[in-house]
Design a protein around this nucleic acid. Structure first.
Lengths: 205, 205
DNA sequence: CAAATTCCTATACAAAAGTATAAGACACTA
DNA sequence: TAGTGTCTTATACTTTTGTATAGGAATTTG
């Protein structure tokens, strides 16, 4: 079985290679950049599975994922990420990824997951996708926010204006302003942009 | 030598444990949360080195680092991060960290670095700190920005208002507005918050 | 030197964000 | 039932942000 791992973190690359080295039937290739990954796919096709890190320089978000999927020539591509949340995972799967590997997963499970995906199945960790809706609400930052404030913060982190958030939530703009002010106070932000950065730093969204 | 690795990514924890397992004289403990790390420090002291992941839920940025440093009871603490930049590394060192490990590092170098730090030295990868100042300017997003636009974007990503950025750069507020508008257009943002999120997503700042 | 760039500032206006106060609807609870 | 808290909206206002246009200064380039 031939596996290609793409990650800009050399350390992760090394460590994962080492992990799979003990699996006799798995042949691991690695690439640290998007370009070298594509080149490797060109020359060393076919792979049974490509493990792609979600956050690579030059690969911005989901657009990057689609690009790789298009250029993978039919190889199944699975996403890896240490930070991405459920929404991202869902979108990646909709875009055609065959799996999603959060880096919070155990190494042993990783091997199983890789075999699973290489055999043509779609893998998503159960506890990741099927956790209670409010999982993320357990985050220390989000805990004090009301449901609406959380939704507004979510919209804010997409870079939306108050008016747009209001449209999405079917509320009046003035209501968004109120929630915005309150949530800023609660998380200690001086303004909306500050709030967005604090939320992002904390790993929300 | 006793080593404690703290990272919310179980996979990283597993892989690194495996890496150090082949080093006979290194005894590795791990913790996946801030709380369990502190508990482990309480009961299993002393460690020769603590490797702390920079982005842990509940540990927001540098404040979290200082907290751990305070509670580490003299154990040297080194920071690990896949995303942090030079500024963060510098601040961490100033706060008392004994080293900084970017996850772009090779696994083999990691072992050396760990031994180095455990022996009382301060470790920072040369190519990380001493790279040319404009390293980050090579980023696809930042390449098209002028120097001033880059500085304004940097201020924005701290959550600063135009007036504050103007004070910091010793410019007029109106000038900041101009740069802000131009940089938003260049990176495809609809407004300042959107720009900040795009920059953050791209790994800038 | 002239042209092109980048940067800085000014004025002026439109739009959005932020603040404050008041009040009604709803659900939950002591 | 009265009280508490969240959510909602309204009105009114100030501040900040965003946009447009224009011009001067400095630097680089042909």
């Amino acid at each position: 079985m031939r596996l290609l791992i793409v990650d800009d973190h050399t350390m992760v690359l090394d460590l994962m290679s080492a992990l799979f080295a003990s699996e006799k039937d798995i042949d691991v290739s690695t690439a640290a950049t998007y370009e070298s990954a594509l080149k490797t796919i060109e020359t060393n096709n076919p792979f049974d599975l490509i493990l792609l890190d979600f956050s690579m320089p030059g690969l911005v978000g989901l657009e990057g994922v689609s690009t790789v999927l298009k250029q993978a020539r039919g190889c199944p591509v699975a996403l890896m990420s240490g930070v991405a949340n459920r929404d991202v995972a869902k979108l990646a799967l909709e875009a055609g990824a065959v799996g999603f590997i959060p880096k919070t997963m155990q190494a042993k499970s990783l091997i199983n997951a890789v075999r699973f995906m290489a055999s043509g199945e779609v893998y998503v960790p159960n506890d990741f996708m099927n956790a209670p809706i409010d999982e993320r609400r357990e985050h220390p930052l989000a805990r004090n926010l009301s449901e609406r404030e959380y939704q507004v913060l979510k919209g804010l982190c997409k870079g939306l204006a108050n008016k747009e958030i209001a449209r999405d939530l079917e509320l009046q703009e003035v209501t968004i302003k109120l929630h915005m002010k309150n949530l800023c106070r609660k998380i200690g932000a001086n303004n909306r942009t500050h709030a967005a950065m604090i939320a992002r730093d904390a790993g929300l969204f």
